[in-house]
Nucleic acid binder design. Structure first.
Length: 300
DNA sequence: GGCCAGGACTATG
DNA sequence: CATAGTCATGGC
Protein backbone atom coordinates (compact mmCIF):
# COMPACT_ATOMS: atom_id res chain seq x y z
CA UNK A 1 0.00 0.00 0.00
CA UNK A 2 1.43 3.31 -1.04
CA UNK A 3 1.41 6.31 1.25
CA UNK A 4 0.66 9.59 -0.36
CA UNK A 5 -0.09 12.57 1.83
CA UNK A 6 -3.62 13.86 1.44
CA UNK A 7 -5.14 16.85 3.20
CA UNK A 8 -3.57 17.66 6.51
CA UNK A 9 -7.08 17.84 7.93
CA UNK A 10 -9.92 15.32 7.74
CA UNK A 11 -13.44 16.71 7.80
CA UNK A 12 -16.17 14.59 9.36
CA UNK A 13 -19.80 15.68 9.17
CA UNK A 14 -21.72 15.53 12.44
CA UNK A 15 -25.45 15.33 13.21
CA UNK A 16 -27.33 18.49 14.05
CA UNK A 17 -27.67 17.14 17.58
CA UNK A 18 -23.98 17.49 18.32
CA UNK A 19 -22.16 19.93 20.59
CA UNK A 20 -18.42 19.56 20.77
CA UNK A 21 -18.24 21.63 23.96
CA UNK A 22 -20.64 19.28 25.77
CA UNK A 23 -18.58 16.25 24.82
CA UNK A 24 -15.44 18.13 25.83
CA UNK A 25 -16.73 18.70 29.35
CA UNK A 26 -17.07 14.97 29.84
CA UNK A 27 -13.74 14.17 28.19
CA UNK A 28 -12.02 16.85 30.23
CA UNK A 29 -13.41 15.85 33.62
CA UNK A 30 -10.18 14.51 35.12
CA UNK A 31 -6.65 15.94 35.06
CA UNK A 32 -5.40 12.34 35.39
CA UNK A 33 -6.93 11.08 32.16
CA UNK A 34 -3.96 9.45 30.41
CA UNK A 35 -5.46 8.55 27.03
CA UNK A 36 -6.24 11.97 25.63
CA UNK A 37 -5.16 15.53 26.19
CA UNK A 38 -6.76 18.93 25.79
CA UNK A 39 -4.92 21.88 24.35
CA UNK A 40 -7.43 24.67 24.46
CA UNK A 41 -10.43 23.56 22.41
CA UNK A 42 -8.53 20.74 20.73
CA UNK A 43 -8.30 17.11 21.85
CA UNK A 44 -5.24 15.06 21.11
CA UNK A 45 -5.45 11.29 21.09
CA UNK A 46 -3.07 8.57 19.99
CA UNK A 47 -4.57 5.63 18.12
CA UNK A 48 -3.15 2.65 16.28
CA UNK A 49 -4.21 1.68 12.77
CA UNK A 50 -2.72 -1.55 11.46
CA UNK A 51 0.12 -1.29 13.94
CA UNK A 52 1.02 2.30 13.08
CA UNK A 53 0.69 5.26 15.43
CA UNK A 54 -1.55 8.16 14.46
CA UNK A 55 -1.65 11.18 16.73
CA UNK A 56 -5.00 12.88 16.16
CA UNK A 57 -5.88 16.45 16.99
CA UNK A 58 -9.63 16.91 16.94
CA UNK A 59 -11.71 20.05 17.12
CA UNK A 60 -14.95 21.40 15.76
CA UNK A 61 -15.94 24.57 13.98
CA UNK A 62 -19.38 25.77 15.01
CA UNK A 63 -20.47 22.12 15.54
CA UNK A 64 -20.91 21.66 11.80
CA UNK A 65 -18.02 19.26 11.38
CA UNK A 66 -15.27 17.56 13.27
CA UNK A 67 -11.82 18.49 12.03
CA UNK A 68 -9.16 15.85 12.49
CA UNK A 69 -5.53 16.72 11.96
CA UNK A 70 -3.00 13.89 11.97
CA UNK A 71 0.05 15.47 13.53
CA UNK A 72 2.79 12.92 13.24
CA UNK A 73 2.67 11.41 9.75
CA UNK A 74 0.88 11.27 6.40
CA UNK A 75 -1.91 8.80 5.79
CA UNK A 76 -3.42 6.90 2.90
CA UNK A 77 -7.10 6.50 2.03
CA UNK A 78 -7.42 3.23 3.92
CA UNK A 79 -5.94 4.78 7.02
CA UNK A 80 -8.14 7.83 6.64
CA UNK A 81 -11.20 5.60 6.58
CA UNK A 82 -10.08 3.84 9.75
CA UNK A 83 -9.45 7.16 11.50
CA UNK A 84 -12.91 8.43 10.59
CA UNK A 85 -14.44 5.18 11.80
CA UNK A 86 -12.63 5.47 15.11
CA UNK A 87 -13.64 9.06 15.74
CA UNK A 88 -17.23 8.41 14.66
CA UNK A 89 -17.44 5.60 17.17
CA UNK A 90 -15.72 7.62 19.90
CA UNK A 91 -18.34 10.38 19.67
CA UNK A 92 -21.16 8.00 18.76
CA UNK A 93 -21.95 10.03 15.67
CA UNK A 94 -24.12 7.36 14.04
CA UNK A 95 -26.89 7.61 16.60
CA UNK A 96 -29.85 9.87 15.83
CA UNK A 97 -30.69 11.54 19.14
CA UNK A 98 -34.04 12.95 18.05
CA UNK A 99 -36.09 10.01 19.37
CA UNK A 100 -34.28 10.32 22.70
CA UNK A 101 -35.00 14.02 22.92
CA UNK A 102 -38.66 13.47 22.08
CA UNK A 103 -38.91 10.78 24.73
CA UNK A 104 -37.05 12.86 27.30
CA UNK A 105 -39.28 15.89 26.78
CA UNK A 106 -42.10 13.95 28.39
CA UNK A 107 -40.04 12.53 31.24
CA UNK A 108 -39.81 14.50 34.47
CA UNK A 109 -36.32 13.24 35.23
CA UNK A 110 -34.79 13.69 31.78
CA UNK A 111 -36.42 16.82 30.40
CA UNK A 112 -34.09 19.30 32.08
CA UNK A 113 -31.00 17.22 31.35
CA UNK A 114 -31.48 17.00 27.60
CA UNK A 115 -32.16 20.69 27.45
CA UNK A 116 -29.11 21.57 29.50
CA UNK A 117 -26.72 19.15 27.78
CA UNK A 118 -28.12 19.22 24.24
CA UNK A 119 -25.66 17.70 21.81
CA UNK A 120 -23.79 15.55 24.32
CA UNK A 121 -22.89 12.19 22.81
CA UNK A 122 -22.27 8.95 24.70
CA UNK A 123 -18.48 8.87 24.64
CA UNK A 124 -17.43 5.34 23.73
CA UNK A 125 -14.48 3.20 24.78
CA UNK A 126 -13.15 1.41 21.71
CA UNK A 127 -11.17 -1.41 23.31
CA UNK A 128 -12.99 -4.11 25.28
CA UNK A 129 -10.00 -4.76 27.52
CA UNK A 130 -9.76 -1.06 28.33
CA UNK A 131 -13.46 -0.85 29.15
CA UNK A 132 -13.21 -3.86 31.47
CA UNK A 133 -10.12 -2.55 33.24
CA UNK A 134 -11.62 0.91 33.69
CA UNK A 135 -14.84 -0.51 35.09
CA UNK A 136 -13.15 -2.92 37.47
CA UNK A 137 -10.71 -0.33 38.75
CA UNK A 138 -13.68 1.95 39.41
CA UNK A 139 -15.62 -0.53 41.49
CA UNK A 140 -16.39 0.74 44.98
CA UNK A 141 -13.87 3.57 45.03
CA UNK A 142 -14.32 7.24 44.27
CA UNK A 143 -13.78 8.37 40.72
CA UNK A 144 -10.75 10.50 41.50
CA UNK A 145 -8.90 7.53 42.96
CA UNK A 146 -10.04 5.36 40.05
CA UNK A 147 -8.36 7.82 37.69
CA UNK A 148 -5.19 7.72 39.76
CA UNK A 149 -5.06 3.93 39.50
CA UNK A 150 -5.96 3.99 35.80
CA UNK A 151 -3.22 6.51 35.07
CA UNK A 152 -0.63 4.49 36.97
CA UNK A 153 -1.67 1.35 35.11
CA UNK A 154 -1.42 3.02 31.69
CA UNK A 155 1.90 4.70 32.44
CA UNK A 156 3.39 1.47 33.78
CA UNK A 157 2.28 -1.00 31.13
CA UNK A 158 1.22 1.04 28.12
CA UNK A 159 3.33 1.99 25.14
CA UNK A 160 3.85 5.62 24.28
CA UNK A 161 5.12 7.97 21.62
CA UNK A 162 6.53 11.45 21.96
CA UNK A 163 5.59 14.34 19.71
CA UNK A 164 6.78 17.92 20.08
CA UNK A 165 8.05 17.24 23.55
CA UNK A 166 4.85 15.70 24.85
CA UNK A 167 4.13 12.02 25.50
CA UNK A 168 1.01 10.22 24.32
CA UNK A 169 -0.12 6.80 25.51
CA UNK A 170 -1.75 3.66 24.23
CA UNK A 171 -3.80 1.58 26.59
CA UNK A 172 -1.72 -1.48 27.64
CA UNK A 173 -1.90 -4.60 25.51
CA UNK A 174 -3.70 -7.54 27.09
CA UNK A 175 -0.73 -9.75 26.28
CA UNK A 176 1.49 -7.50 28.39
CA UNK A 177 -0.84 -7.63 31.39
CA UNK A 178 -1.41 -11.37 30.98
CA UNK A 179 2.15 -12.13 32.03
CA UNK A 180 2.04 -10.06 35.24
CA UNK A 181 1.81 -11.33 38.78
CA UNK A 182 -0.88 -9.88 41.07
CA UNK A 183 1.92 -8.55 43.26
CA UNK A 184 3.03 -6.16 40.53
CA UNK A 185 -0.43 -4.62 40.22
CA UNK A 186 -0.80 -4.44 43.99
CA UNK A 187 2.27 -2.23 44.03
CA UNK A 188 0.13 0.34 42.16
CA UNK A 189 -2.39 0.13 45.04
CA UNK A 190 -4.81 -1.98 43.06
CA UNK A 191 -6.40 -4.44 45.49
CA UNK A 192 -5.35 -8.07 45.51
CA UNK A 193 -8.73 -9.20 44.25
CA UNK A 194 -8.89 -6.69 41.43
CA UNK A 195 -5.32 -7.51 40.42
CA UNK A 196 -6.33 -11.13 40.00
CA UNK A 197 -9.38 -10.14 37.98
CA UNK A 198 -7.38 -7.94 35.62
CA UNK A 199 -4.74 -10.58 34.94
CA UNK A 200 -7.34 -13.26 34.39
CA UNK A 201 -9.21 -11.03 31.94
CA UNK A 202 -5.98 -10.09 30.17
CA UNK A 203 -5.21 -13.78 29.64
CA UNK A 204 -8.61 -14.44 28.15
CA UNK A 205 -8.39 -11.43 25.83
CA UNK A 206 -4.82 -12.25 24.81
CA UNK A 207 -5.81 -15.84 24.10
CA UNK A 208 -8.64 -14.70 21.85
CA UNK A 209 -11.28 -16.23 24.13
CA UNK A 210 -12.85 -12.86 24.89
CA UNK A 211 -13.35 -10.24 22.21
CA UNK A 212 -15.60 -7.33 21.35
CA UNK A 213 -16.75 -8.53 17.94
CA UNK A 214 -18.00 -11.88 19.22
CA UNK A 215 -19.93 -10.24 22.02
CA UNK A 216 -21.46 -7.72 19.62
CA UNK A 217 -22.44 -10.47 17.20
CA UNK A 218 -24.38 -12.21 19.98
CA UNK A 219 -26.15 -9.34 21.70
CA UNK A 220 -28.62 -11.65 23.38
CA UNK A 221 -25.97 -13.44 25.41
CA UNK A 222 -23.35 -10.72 25.81
CA UNK A 223 -24.41 -9.67 29.30
CA UNK A 224 -24.48 -13.15 30.76
CA UNK A 225 -21.17 -14.02 29.14
CA UNK A 226 -19.60 -10.94 30.66
CA UNK A 227 -21.00 -11.76 34.07
CA UNK A 228 -19.47 -15.22 33.96
CA UNK A 229 -16.07 -13.55 34.17
CA UNK A 230 -14.53 -13.17 37.62
CA UNK A 231 -14.85 -9.62 38.82
CA UNK A 232 -17.67 -8.80 36.42
CA UNK A 233 -21.05 -8.40 38.11
CA UNK A 234 -24.25 -6.69 37.01
CA UNK A 235 -22.82 -3.19 37.23
CA UNK A 236 -19.63 -3.91 35.27
CA UNK A 237 -21.46 -5.90 32.60
CA UNK A 238 -23.93 -3.09 32.01
CA UNK A 239 -21.19 -0.49 32.07
CA UNK A 240 -19.19 -2.31 29.39
CA UNK A 241 -22.32 -2.89 27.30
CA UNK A 242 -23.03 0.83 27.51
CA UNK A 243 -19.57 2.32 26.97
CA UNK A 244 -17.94 -0.26 24.69
CA UNK A 245 -20.40 -2.63 23.02
CA UNK A 246 -22.93 0.00 22.04
CA UNK A 247 -25.98 -1.60 23.68
CA UNK A 248 -28.47 1.27 23.90
CA UNK A 249 -30.56 -0.48 26.55
CA UNK A 250 -27.69 -1.13 28.95
CA UNK A 251 -28.49 0.31 32.35
CA UNK A 252 -26.14 0.07 35.37
CA UNK A 253 -28.86 0.33 38.01
CA UNK A 254 -26.40 -0.55 40.80
CA UNK A 255 -24.31 2.51 40.04
CA UNK A 256 -23.83 4.75 43.09
CA UNK A 257 -23.09 7.74 40.90
CA UNK A 258 -26.23 7.17 38.86
CA UNK A 259 -28.25 6.82 42.04
CA UNK A 260 -26.82 10.06 43.36
CA UNK A 261 -27.59 11.82 40.09
CA UNK A 262 -31.22 10.71 40.25
CA UNK A 263 -31.39 11.71 43.88
CA UNK A 264 -30.16 15.20 43.02
CA UNK A 265 -32.43 15.62 40.02
CA UNK A 266 -35.57 14.55 41.87
CA UNK A 267 -34.64 16.14 45.18
CA UNK A 268 -34.96 12.87 47.08
CA UNK A 269 -33.93 12.57 50.71
CA UNK A 270 -31.96 9.39 50.08
CA UNK A 271 -30.52 7.53 47.13
CA UNK A 272 -32.93 5.40 45.13
CA UNK A 273 -32.04 1.69 45.05
CA UNK A 274 -31.73 -0.43 41.94
CA UNK A 275 -35.41 -1.42 42.04
CA UNK A 276 -36.47 2.22 42.15
CA UNK A 277 -34.17 3.02 39.21
CA UNK A 278 -35.58 0.13 37.19
CA UNK A 279 -39.07 1.56 37.65
CA UNK A 280 -37.99 5.05 36.64
CA UNK A 281 -36.26 3.65 33.55
CA UNK A 282 -39.19 1.49 32.50
CA UNK A 283 -40.26 3.82 29.71
CA UNK A 284 -36.77 4.58 28.50
CA UNK A 285 -36.47 1.45 26.37
CA UNK A 286 -33.46 1.62 24.09
CA UNK A 287 -32.44 5.01 25.48
CA UNK A 288 -31.45 3.78 28.94
CA UNK A 289 -27.76 4.03 28.15
CA UNK A 290 -28.11 7.61 26.94
CA UNK A 291 -30.25 8.53 29.93
CA UNK A 292 -27.52 7.13 32.16
CA UNK A 293 -24.85 9.12 30.37
CA UNK A 294 -26.79 12.36 30.65
CA UNK A 295 -27.31 11.66 34.36
CA UNK A 296 -23.57 11.06 34.75
CA UNK A 297 -23.00 14.41 33.08
CA UNK A 298 -25.12 16.12 35.72
CA UNK A 299 -22.57 15.08 38.34
CA UNK A 300 -19.72 17.08 36.78
C1' DG B 1 -11.82 12.12 61.58
C1' DG B 2 -15.68 9.69 59.86
C1' DC B 3 -18.28 8.63 56.01
C1' DC B 4 -18.46 7.65 51.35
C1' DA B 5 -16.97 5.91 46.90
C1' DG B 6 -19.69 4.97 39.04
C1' DG B 7 -19.20 -3.44 43.29
C1' DA B 8 -18.19 -8.25 43.51
C1' DC B 9 -17.36 -12.35 46.00
C1' DT B 10 -18.34 -15.56 49.57
C1' DA B 11 -20.80 -17.45 53.26
C1' DT B 12 -24.99 -17.86 55.63
C1' DG B 13 -30.30 -18.02 56.56
C1' DC C 1 -33.70 -14.92 47.04
C1' DA C 2 -32.12 -11.59 50.84
C1' DT C 3 -28.71 -10.16 54.06
C1' DA C 4 -24.03 -9.62 56.15
C1' DG C 5 -19.10 -9.55 56.17
C1' DT C 6 -14.92 -8.64 53.45
C1' DC C 7 -11.83 -6.26 50.46
C1' DA C 8 -8.85 -1.71 50.98
C1' DT C 9 -7.67 3.03 50.31
C1' DG C 10 -8.15 7.66 48.88
C1' DG C 11 -11.06 11.83 48.75
C1' DC C 12 -13.41 15.29 50.92
Amino acid sequence: MQHHPTHPSIIVPVPREFRFAQCAVYLNRSPREPLHEFTGQKIRKLIAVAGEDFLLEITSKRDLHLHIAVLNRPFCETEKTAIIRFVSEWFDLATDLNPFYTLAAGDALLAQLVSRYFGLRLIRIHHLFQALVWAILGQQINLAFAYTLFQRFVHRYGESMTFAGRTYWHFPQASRVASLRPQELQALQITTRKSEYLIDLARRVAAGALDKATLQQNPGTAKERLQQLRGVGPWTANYVLMRCLGDPSAFPADDIGLQNAVKNQLGLRQKPDRAHLQILAQGWGDWRAYATFYLYRSLL
